[in-house]
Design a protein around this nucleic acid. Structure first.
Length: 564
DNA sequence: CTTAAGCAGTAGGCTCCGGG
DNA sequence: CCCGGAGCCTACTGCTTAAG
């Protein structure tokens, strides 16, 4: 404590003893202790030495970590222990029971897609967890990943695995699925990432077509894998097909009269149909276990579907499944997966509203603040038709078109929608447009810092009268063991729906940033900040370092280890 | 636009109270 | 007597603003 009588400088002895010095020589303390009163100590230089605000940033970080830990514990109904002020492990924070439960959960659910830990070794080391810092950190990371629904970010330094790598591993049989997953991602090398990030421009239709072919052949029709693995494999495969298709349209490689379905504007519908049919066969749990990575993939596929949806004619037969029904399915999935933690639903709804403004009640813009409002959303007109006759609000923002051009794209206007898309997406056109005005995109629709409360999406009224709040399995036709959708070969390219690629459409609205903005969205949509921007199950387009960018599977970098 | 002065916030050193 | 730590002091830093 400093007082008005404090001396400017304490003598060496008083300074060392931390007692009040009176400043005289010899001072009272030195006199009574019979010490020589000296002032030899060299005062330290005052003021900050390192970078400024180091302490305050540390404090902020510590408080944030503490808050996260408390939140996580509260979620599990566990009383939060006092936060350790040091970096040392807090005794009792990670109990044997928690370690055992996490281990069990990991090997039961996540090991098939993340075979990165050896169970016996892990269990052996877990006994000495307090003596083994590395294992402690690893187990803590697993706990964190499980509690926070985040994939492990451990970087693989292994070669391409094979079934016979370790005959003693009791989990060996799970490698089948993992190798399948590697095969799905194998075609995505540095070249693809460079093209994706636009650090390369030599993108040929033949290359993209070859990629689609490899993708469609990457998985066998019948997978000898667990349901969890199958859900991840099938979803990843369809999502990657969508990514390649997006690259195709970015490079103006699509054509309305191409023999290769993957090079047409209809392809997202095929993908959506296949994925919708596949996901209908998966249990809720088998999809949720993959966390937000799988949700993002569903979201990406649904976004591409939405983009082409505005161009499709109303289905003639209201009693068959169509693109809008697939979209409905994806919305329902986004609304119920992850226990209502559906940040992607409002993004998709906003995109639908933006691309197909006639479909969604304008009040939907307030959806995040008004969760119940989703129950009243009438997306379709009751006959499975979207509001095709209503021009997109921002259509006239496109550089190549005046406001009146819409009439040309309208069915009555007489311009084929494929023709129209080709015109809009051809390099000669897009080259004159800014990245912001590229077709097939969504404009920035919300702030990055936006957080969404739990948002119910009980469904919207449409022709198929999907009941609100329906059970997941019933909703997707699983309960009675059959899908309510058309049959298509899993993972393969399917025939186009009849009549979908005909002349129709109202032009394509929106703008698409060419570079993926560091989020799960392939549309450059700013996602809520709460959605982790790292460790998505796929790569990010935010990076400009395409050449050294690894293509990952659930956060595991495969590109440097022969998975090319 | 550049430069310098002023200002506010920050970090670290200091004294020394008071509990053990 | 030891020493943790409260409170004060001051050098330092980065931002803002005014002057040239």
């Amino acid at each position: 404590m400093s007082s008005s009588s404090s001396v400017k400088r304490a003598c060496d002895a008083c300074h060392r003893r931390k007692v009040k010095c009176y400043g005289i020589n010899p001072c009272r303390n030195c006199s009574s202790a019979q010490l020589s009163c000296t002032y030899h100590a060299i005062p330290q230089k005052k003021g900050p030495k390192g970078s400024r605000a180091k302490v305050i940033s540390e404090l902020r970080q510590n408080q944030q970590s503490s808050l996260s830990a408390k939140t996580a514990n509260r979620m599990n109904g566990v009383q939060s222990p006092p936060c350790s002020p040091t970096l040392a492990p807090t005794p009792g924070l990670l109990t044997t029971e928690i370690v055992k439960e996490c281990t069990e959960f990991f090997f039961a659910n996540m090991y098939p897609t993340m075979p990165i830990l050896h169970r016996e070794i892990l269990e052996q080391q877990a006994l000495y967890v307090d003596q083994n810092v590395d294992t402690y950190c690893l187990l803590t990371a697993i706990s964190y990943a499980l509690q926070r629904h985040r994939p492990l970010s451990l970087q693989a330094t292994i070669n391409l695995p094979s079934i016979n790598d370790d005959p003693t591993d009791p989990q060996n049989h799970h490698l089948h699925g993992f190798i399948h997953l590697v095969n799905v991602y194998r075609p995505f090398d540095d070249k693809f990432v460079a093209l994706w990030n636009k650090t390369r421009t030599d993108c040929s239709p033949a290359y993209l077509s070859s990629l689609q072919k490899q993708l469609s052949e990457a998985l066998p029709v019948y997978l000898n894998t667990t349901e969890n693995q199958t859900a991840d494999l099938r979803t990843s495969q369809q999502w990657l097909r969508t990514m390649v298709w997006q690259l195709s349209i970015q490079n103006g490689c699509l054509s309305s009269n191409c023999d290769d379905p993957s090079m047409t504007f209809q392809y997202p519908v095929d993908i959506a149909r296949d994925l919708a049919q596949m996901t209908s066969q998966f249990s809720h749990q088998s999809m949720e276990v993959h966390g937000v990575g799988l949700i993002e993939k569903l979201f990406d596929v649904a976004c591409s579907l939405t983009d082409v949806l505005s161009l499709l004619p109303a289905k003639s037969d209201p009693f068959t499944m169509g693109p809008r029904d697939y979209l409905h399915q994806f919305m329902t999935m986004l609304s119920i997966l992850r226990n209502g933690d559906h940040r992607f639903l409002p993004l998709l709804l906003n995109k639908v509203h933006d691309v197909l403004p006639g479909l969604v009640n304008p009040m939907l813009q307030n959806a995040p603040e008004n969760p119940q409002m989703c129950a009243d959303v009438d997306l379709f007109d009751g006959f499975g038709n979207t509001g095709i006759s209503i021009p997109p609000q921002n259509y006239n923002t496109m550089a190549t078109s005046g406001p009146n051009d819409y009439k040309m794209a309208h069915p009555n206007g007489g311009l084929a929608f494929d023709k129209r898309i080709e015109e809009l997406s051809s390099p000669s056109v897009t080259g004159s447009m800014s990245a912001e005005t590229t077709p097939f995109t969504s404009p920035p629709i919300m702030n990055t810092g936006m957080e969404y409360q739990a948002l119910d999406y009980p469904g919207f009224h449409d022709l198929n009268s999907h009941a609100h709040g329906m059970d997941f399995k019933r909703e997707f036709g699983v309960e009675n063991g059959e899908s309510s959708f058309g049959v298509s070969s899993p993972g393969g390219m399917s025939e186009m729906s009849s009549g979908v690629a005909s002349v129709n459409g109202n032009g394509i609205s929106g703008r698409r940033p060419p570079i993926r903005q560091g989020s799960g969205s392939s549309y450059g949509m700013p996602l809520p900040r709460s959605i982790p921007e790292f460790n998505h199950g796929h790569f990010s387009r935010a990076s400009t370092g395409g050449d050294d960018m690894g293509v990952g599977v659930n956060g595991v970098d495969l590109s440097h280890h022969g998975y090319r």
